[in-house]
Design a protein around this nucleic acid. Structure first.
Lengths: 118, 118
DNA sequence: GCTATTTACAACCATGTGGTTGTACGTTAC
DNA sequence: GTAACGTACAACCACATGGTTGTAAATAGC
């Protein structure tokens, strides 16, 4: 899974999260496994590609911490990880924040500057 | 820029947004240009790589709609696009929603099922 | 115990990515 | 006008990515 225990994410971890989300098949796997767990072969049945290809997609998601995989008999049960989604949300929130604080600075500047009438 | 005018994003557009965010240098460019506009050469000065490399990163961000680039004299002024960030946030919110509705379903199931005392 | 199912993993291939250098061109400054 | 600056773009390289097929091993079902 390769996920830092601290609440702070390294650049590599963030890279992996966004990289993993940058593929429609993988996003669909995340959707399915957030809605309900599924085995790798169940997932593989849903896409027009080989079992091995789906297996690789699951591995990428697992490496990013977006899903977990645990053995049950001969199957591997894949489950979406809502925490990873929330971590990604927090990252985007940070960018929003940067934007807002810029606007705030500009607003403050306008407030403190007597308007120049023309 | 290559951004759909409708509020719905295509798979390719989503791919480009997440792909663009999956690189630390590009995330830093987004941060800087959300905080305040910068020319390509100003950005290039901030990283230990060639001007052309930074130029490519900016192009990737522009292709994802995460920044805009407009000419000013001989410079190209790069500006972060908060709307694209918000679009990405909405995407992640959708996954959160899937998770929540699953929990809701499970809760409802538990509520409607008489508890089995042991 | 056999057979079918499910997974793991290696090897391979085409294409994409992130970096480089080099060259050309428009704009600014003097 | 000329030199310096900022940008664009092509060509190239190493490596990653997304797909394939094939083989082997663990588990389940009969």
């Amino acid at each position: 899974m390769v996920v830092n225990s601290s609440s702070e994410l390294t650049d590599d971890e963030v890279d992996r999260i966004f990289r993993a989300l940058a593929d429609a098949t993988r996003r669909d796997i995340v959707r399915r496994t957030l809605a309900g767990e599924a085995s790798v072969s169940e997932l593989a049945g849903a896409y027009a590609m080989s079992f091995a290809a789906v297996q690789k997609h699951v591995a990428v998601l697992e490496g990013a911490g977006l899903v977990t995989k645990k053995p049950r008999g001969r199957e591997r049960v894949v489950r979406g990880n809502p925490d990873a989604i929330r971590r990604a949300q927090r990252l985007l929130d940070a960018y929003e924040q940067i934007w807002r604080s810029r606007i705030d600075r500009l607003d403050a500047l306008l407030d403190s500057t007597p308007s120049q009438q023309q």
